[in-house]
């Protein structure tokens, strides 16, 4: 069974925000919530790099560990999903997540949080696949349709890759060998654990 992961190749990302827009469009995401964002390091300085980030679907997911109602679950493909019917909007997952993935639509005065929303790896939620109910709460379930996440599919430079971690690692290894630089795989150490315990870690890639 494939272990789904995201990989963003900072040597290729051109900060076009196409992935952000693709995600918003695909899932009809409400105002104020962005499941994906692009962050630029050292903007405007030689050597600047941009990285697209969303939920990384961590191996030992911190959000899952701290949720007081235990509403997260992991699919067989390693995708971390949650049940909005159980979520109480306490914000603990947002405190715990290293990537700032959980988002909250405002549900009242004084910043009262609504049900948490985050990237689903385009895999929907607990409802039956691609029902109206599932779409309304979590957006489209592309994995069930045999497609990969919309953000990665849309990426014009193929900087953002989403899919089976082994395949991503192979693609990345080949890229690094060809261009002879840019071996840094962003976020994998944080999301998927130390290199030794990480299935499908690209060889020689420095983890950050």
């Amino acid at each position: 069974m494939a272990r789904m992961k995201f990989l963003c190749d900072a040597e290729r990302c051109i900060e076009c925000n196409g992935c952000v827009t693709a995600c918003k469009q695909e899932h009809d995401i409400p105002w104020g919530v962005n499941r994906r964002r692009v962050v630029t390091i050292n903007d405007g300085v030689p050597g600047e790099r941009s990285i697209s980030v969303a939920c990384m679907h961590c191996s030992d997911a911190p959000c899952m560990a701290v949720c007081p109602v235990d509403c997260f679950y992991k699919t067989e493909e390693g995708v971390v999903l949650h049940d909005k019917d159980l979520c109480i909007g306490c914000g603990y997952c947002f405190y715990a997540c290293p990537f700032g993935a959980p988002q909250f639509p405002q549900a009242g005065a004084f910043g009262v949080r609504g049900k948490m929303d985050k990237c689903t790896f385009c895999a929907g939620g607990p409802e039956a696949n691609n029902t109206a109910d599932e779409y309304k709460k979590y957006g489209r379930n592309r994995l069930a349709e045999g497609k990969l996440p919309a953000c990665a599919e849309m990426c014009a430079t193929k900087a953002l890759l989403g899919g089976d971690g082994d395949v991503l690692a192979d693609i990345y290894r080949e890229r690094v060998t060809k261009r002879g630089k840019g071996a840094d795989v962003w976020g994998w150490g944080t999301a998927y654990g130390p290199p030794g315990q990480q299935p499908a870690a690209p060889a020689g890639g420095a983890k950050s």
């Binding site: 925000n17 964002r37 962050v39 630029t40 390091i41 700032g100 988002q103 976020g187």
Partner: peptide, 13 residues
């Protein structure tokens, strides 16, 4: 860092 997506700490990786 820098991000065009507005929101709390969206510019922190």
């Amino acid at each position: 860092q820098t991000s065009t997506v507005r929101g709390r700490e969206t510019n922190v990786l």
